[in-house]
Design a binder for these strands. Structure first.
Length: 560
RNA sequence: GCGCCCGUAGCUCAGCUGGAUAGAGCGUCGGACUUCGAAUCCGCAGGCCGCAGGUUCGAAUCCUGCCGGGCGUACCA
């Protein structure tokens, strides 16, 4: 109960309890209490709409209820300056400036741990993301999915979930043969004058490069070998090489997976048939016009879906059903799938699938990531996936750096399309959001360097600092302390709604408050006690910035 | 046709489990460096929250219809 917010929540719950009892209706579920931070300062530091939501239950006028809540409210922690009833029935809380100081203690005793909490109660979560087909290098759109999945995993982990990251490799089916054949033709091109490159194959530049490397390894050994005979080797070789490239690109982007799951493995183990049989026993499978269907309409899908085609070959969806069944069998409480938004039409059947397996619909959360419009200097960069011409994740990371790329990917809700301007991501100016935040951190580091040069030996220790912290009584200082205190709530909200973008928004606001404070006030001055106090505050701001950046997988530089 | 997502400041977007006067960045214009990093800060301007109804004490937020945009709509993966 260290934070002001928690203390008020606690006091408020206690004050409301007697009102609910007096309502003489034990079946009543207490409405969820909301404690918001009002935009306007005259509305206090915190406000609750509790009285208004209680009108429905208690059938009385909200201002009257608010009065009773306040009457029952005991300021056991001695943190409230005053409370008031305002507007239609808000209760506004005005916090004593001194009450905020406890946050410094909280942050500085264990900076990296600050904000961590046990929201997840140790529940096991799997986040599956990227899962791009191993038929070519990752492009920029995959990068956004990668950043989203990775940061979501970090956030959930910080909030007390046990998280695994997984990549599903679509290494089964005909596309791997097509891939192998593509290499075969490019290889033949290197040996002969001209080769007809057939339609529908992977014709990107990366395949030509791969062919050259392959040629250097094997020479002309396969020049006379017919396609059918060479194909298995070519397919395996291409698949492995491309997957390796994907792994390297992700590594450079700061992303590691706990598990790489092969679709082919499901086929080999016969789990797909088994899954279909299990669903058949439950009555969700039927035959129609030579094909085998899954009754997904049972769970709200608009039509039933084919799992085994009339030609006897199972569909991709069938493998996905088996895959998700496998995930649940590994004892995850919650599955998070990160998909490209163009797959949204697939959602309902997948949700139907897990419900048919006896799972709750909520046990699978599907996050849709919208596409990235790549710009350069404000103008769209032409991309055509069909012709195999696209800007790869590697190119972007090489050009703008991991930090800028990750940060920009996360500055929007994932289901909103994103404009990514390569020039802007590189400019080291105020147009670039990541530098704004990193600059604040570097600036703070510099303050501590200067402090040392001037003989301040800043070392956090609660007893020593408590006295001078009382000097922090500027409104701006209270504001900063309060924002620092809101970090855990922001993290929790981000985890609950599975929305990583809340972190960059919080960071920007915190940093903006800091820059403003910094420009108006001097941290190091003639007043030794005051300087010491402000160094405490500065240290806390620096730590929370670093903490949040770390959560985003972005560096917090000491110099820029 | 049907389904999903989206229409908020000139531009790009937050805010959406209903709450007080709708916010930020960029851009425009005007200010602040003898002082810890001006990659910063301060200020001005900018809005029928796509349109029309409905529910409510209260709607950008929920419901319905319409208009406009994106995506999906395979016995492809």
């Amino acid at each position: 109960m260290a934070f002001v917010r928690d203390k008020i929540m606690e006091m408020l719950s206690l004050a409301i309890a007697p009102l609910l009892e007096s309502a003489n209706n034990p079946s009543l579920i207490p409405p969820s209490i909301e404690l918001t931070t009002p935009k306007a300062t005259q509305h206090g530091d915190y406000a609750t709409n509790a009285a208004m939501t209680l009108t429905r239950v208690l059938k009385r006028n909200p201002r009257e209820i608010a009065g009773e809540i306040i009457a029952h409210l005991e300021d056991t922690h001695g943190i409230l300056e005053r409370t008031e009833i305002a507007g239609p029935g808000f209760i506004n809380f005005f916090v004593k400036p001194q009450a905020w100081l406890g946050i410094l203690h909280e942050i500085l005793t264990d900076p990296l741990h600050y904000g961590r909490q046990n929201l997840g109660l140790g529940k096991r979560v799997q986040v599956e993301f990227v899962s791009a087909n191993p038929t070519g290098p990752l492009h920029i759109g995959h990068g956004r999915g990668a950043a989203t999945g990775d940061v979501l995993a970090r956030i959930l982990s910080a909030c007390g979930y046990l998280v695994d990251r997984e990549y599903y490799i679509n290494d089964a089916g005909n596309q791997m043969n097509t891939l192998g054949a593509s290499l075969y033709y490019r290889y033949q091109e290197l040996l002969k004058e001209s080769v007809e490159f057939p339609e529908g194959h992977y014709q990107g530049e990366y395949m030509k490069e791969l062919a050259r490397e392959f040629f250097e390894e094997v020479g002309e050994r396969y020049s006379k070998v017919p396609l059918e005979e060479a194909l298995p080797h070519f397919s395996r070789y291409t698949g492995e090489r491309i997957l390796k490239g994907i792994q390297e690109d992700l590594d450079a982007f700061g992303i590691r997976f706990d598990n790489w799951f092969s679709e082919q493995g499901l086929h080999d183990a016969g789990v797909i048939e088994k899954t279909i049989e299990e669903l058949r026993e439950k009555g969700y499978i039927y035959e129609h016009e030579g094909a085998t269907w899954f009754r997904s309409t049972e769970f709200g899908d608009e039509k039933d879906r084919v799992v085994v085609r009339a030609n006897g070959i199972s569909t991709y969806f069938a493998a996905d059903l088996a895959y998700h069944k496998n995930k649940f069998s590994r004892n995850y409480d919650l599955l998070v799938d990160i998909w490209g938004a163009d797959h949204h039409g697939y959602m309902e059947r997948m949700l139907a699938g897990i419900q048919a397996m006896g799972r709750n619909r909520r046990d699978l959360q599907i996050i849709l990531v919208q596409l990235v419009n790549l710009l350069r200097g404000g103008k769209p960069v032409a991309m055509s996936t069909r012709a195999g011409e696209f800007v790869t994740l590697k190119e972007v990371v090489d050009e703008v750096g991991k930090d800028a790329a990750r940060y920009i990917f996360l500055t929007r809700r994932s289901d909103s399309p994103l404009d990514f301007d390569l020039d802007l991501a590189k400019t080291q100016s105020n147009e670039n959001p990541v530098f704004y935040v990193q600059y604040a951190h570097a600036r703070l580091c510099r303050v501590f360097e200067v402090a040392r040069e001037r003989g301040f030996s800043f070392q956090w220790s609660p007893l020593q600092m408590e006295e001078c912290m009382q000097r922090l009584n500027l409104p701006q200082e209270a504001m900063l302390l309060k924002m620092l205190g809101e970090y855990p709530a922001t993290l929790a909200s981000s985890a609950r709604s599975l929305e990583p973008h809340q972190i960059p928004y919080y960071l920007h606001e915190l940093v903006s408050n800091f820059h403003s404070y910094y420009n108006q006030n001097r941290i190091l001055g003639d007043d030794f006690q005051l300087s010491k106090a402000r160094l405490c505050l500065a240290a806390a701001v620096k730590e929370v910035i670093a903490n949040a950046l770390h959560l985003l997988g972005v560096d917090a530089p000491h110099r820029m």
